[in-house]
Amino acid sequence: MQTKLLKLLDQLLGAGAAACLPAAASRPLEVVRRILVIRPGGIGDAVLLAPALVALKKRFPEAELTLLAERRNGGAFRLCPQVDRLLLYDRPADLLEVLRGGFDVIIDTEQWHRLSAVVARLARAPLSIGYATNDRKRLFSHGVPYSQDDYEAFSFFNLLAPLGISAPESLSVPFLTIPGEAASRAEALLGGGHDPRLVTVFPGASIPERRWGAARFAELAQRLTLAGCRIAVVGGPGDRGEGETIVAGCGGLNLAGRTSLVDSAAVIAQSRLLISGDSGILHIAVGLGIPTVSLFGPGIEAKWGPRGLDHRIVNLHLACSPCTRFGTTPHCPDGARCLSEISVAEVIAAAQELLS
Rank of each mutant, 00 (worst) to 15 (best):
V37E: 07
I38H: 03
I38W: 04
I38N: 05
R39L: 03
R39P: 00
R39Y: 02
R39N: 14
G41V: 00
G42V: 04
D45H: 07
V47F: 10
V47T: 12
V47M: 10
L48T: 15
L48I: 15
L49D: 00
L49C: 08
L49W: 04
L49Y: 02
P51F: 13
P51I: 15
V54R: 15
A55Y: 05
A55P: 07
L56H: 12
L56Q: 14
K58Q: 15
K58C: 08
R59D: 06
R59G: 01
F60M: 12
P61Q: 14
P61S: 14
P61L: 14
E62T: 12
A63W: 09
A63K: 09
A63C: 10
E64H: 13
T66C: 15
L67Y: 02
L68I: 10
A69S: 15
E70F: 05
R71A: 14
R72L: 13
R72N: 06
N73V: 00
G74N: 08
G75K: 01
R78T: 00
R78Y: 01
L79V: 11
V83K: 01
V83L: 10
R85Y: 01
Y89Q: 06
D90P: 04
P92T: 10
P92C: 14
D94W: 01
D94L: 08
V98F: 08
V98S: 06
V98Y: 02
G101C: 12
F103D: 00
D104P: 11
V105P: 13
E110M: 12
E110A: 13
W112I: 08
H113V: 07
H113Y: 13
L115N: 00
S116F: 04
S116K: 05
V119L: 09
A120T: 05
L122R: 15
A123L: 08
A123K: 06
A123I: 09
A125L: 08
L127N: 06
S128W: 03
I129Y: 06
I129C: 07
I129P: 15
I129R: 11
G130R: 05
G130Y: 06
Y131M: 08
Y131V: 09
N134T: 07
R136G: 03
R136T: 09
K137T: 09
R138N: 14
R138I: 13
L139P: 12
L139T: 03
S141N: 11
S141R: 08
S141P: 11
S141Y: 10
S141W: 07
P145Q: 14
Y146A: 10
Y146E: 06
D149C: 04
D150V: 15
E152R: 15
E152P: 03
S155W: 01
L159I: 11
P162G: 11
G164L: 06
I165Y: 07
I165R: 11
E169N: 07
